[in-house]
Amino acid sequence: MTRTTYSQFVCDHCDEGFRSAAALTRHCNMINLPLTHSCTKCMSQFHNHILLVTHKERCLRPAPSQHVCHICGKHLTTAFNLKNHLVRHAGTRRHKCDQCSASFYTAAELCSHQKTHTTERPYICRYNCGKTFRFCSARSMHERVHMDASKRIYQCEYCPKSYVTPSECRTHQKYHNLTRDHGCEICHISFKTAKHYRSHLKSNAHKTLEERAKAAAYPNSRGKNRSPN
């Protein structure tokens, strides 16, 4: 499947192109990209330069040109966004899936949902590892594994390791905070988790030292049951 490229709204991380700033923002949120660009007027933050530029064009407009929800007072950036916002207040999910009972407020939400009903995985890893994905955001998340450490934006606070997702980084950092409560008295090694300790007990190195410790403790045990000549 050939991907359509849109020249204006492009993700800095994976070079994927999108039809609108909103679509690019959703993509960046899904793959957990950091907010690195700030608006000097209102201090809002954005994932990349093109999103910041798009925001500034709207931010500099006078207040009357803003689109405000008459129900909750929320300010929207475009008439299209206001229209989609009002649909949610109405509570009407007009866009129904023809394969299950799910229904959605917008056509875009329905389109995204319908991909879960197909086995088609059109997004192929561009590092040729063979993996395929239903969504471009899932592919972008995966591809960080192949990139150098500078692209793995979640940095461990305690060591140089970095990770693709925040959950992976949090899981890793827990090990830095654990005490080594699981000690092997034979090998004089301690471990942070019971899992690692049990794995050690099954290792050949531990079993060898264990046999030597037994032999040293009972030096005559081997010939104890031997019959005299």
Rank of each mutant, 00 (worst) to 15 (best):
A217M: 05
G73H: 09
S38G: 06
F46E: 03
I71W: 06
T25K: 14
N204I: 10
S44N: 07
T179D: 13
S167Q: 12
M30Y: 05
H70I: 11
H27S: 02
K56Q: 12
G130T: 12
Y105A: 15
H27K: 09
C39H: 03
C136Y: 04
K214V: 10
K202F: 08
M30V: 03
I50N: 04
A217D: 04
S44C: 05
T4P: 03
Y218D: 08
C184Q: 07
A194S: 12
P228N: 08
Q173R: 13
A21K: 04
C136R: 10
L178Q: 09
H37I: 00
L33C: 06
H13D: 15
E185S: 12
H176M: 06
H49S: 09
R212V: 15
G73R: 08
H95Y: 10
Y127W: 10
K202Q: 15
C111T: 08
F9W: 07
D12A: 11
E16W: 00
S65P: 04
C42E: 06
D15W: 09
C187V: 11
V87R: 14
L110Y: 07
R3W: 05
A194P: 04
A102W: 00
L24K: 02
I31L: 14
Y154T: 00
Q8Y: 06
M141G: 03
T165Y: 02
K131T: 10
P122E: 04
Y105P: 04
D12H: 12
Y163K: 08
R180N: 10
C72T: 11
C39F: 02
C42M: 07
H37V: 02
S137Q: 02
T179E: 14
T54Y: 13
H55F: 01
F191R: 06
E210S: 15
P122Q: 04
N81M: 07
L51G: 00
V53M: 08
K202C: 13
K41N: 05
V145K: 00
T116P: 03
A138D: 14
R198S: 13
E143R: 03
C14H: 01
G183D: 09
R3F: 05
S199G: 15
T40F: 04
H67M: 06
R134N: 01
Q66C: 10
H27L: 08
C125M: 05
E211M: 11
E57M: 11
K83F: 05
P228L: 10
V53W: 04
C111I: 05
L52K: 03
M1P: 07
S7G: 11
K96A: 09
K151D: 01
S203L: 12
H75Y: 07
Y123V: 00
H196D: 09
T106F: 02
L86V: 11
C59K: 03
R226Q: 09
R198Q: 15
K202I: 08
S7R: 13
R180C: 10
C125N: 03
G223D: 12
V68W: 05
P122A: 07
Q8K: 11
A21P: 01
A216W: 01
E157R: 12
H188T: 14
D181R: 15
R94Y: 02
A22D: 14
K56P: 00
P160Y: 08
N29E: 15
Y6K: 11
S167D: 09
Q114H: 06
S20W: 02
C125T: 01
R134G: 03
K214F: 09
V87D: 11
Y154L: 01
A23D: 06
L82W: 01
H117Q: 09
H176C: 03
P219S: 05
S199Y: 12
A21Y: 00
L52Q: 03
T193G: 09
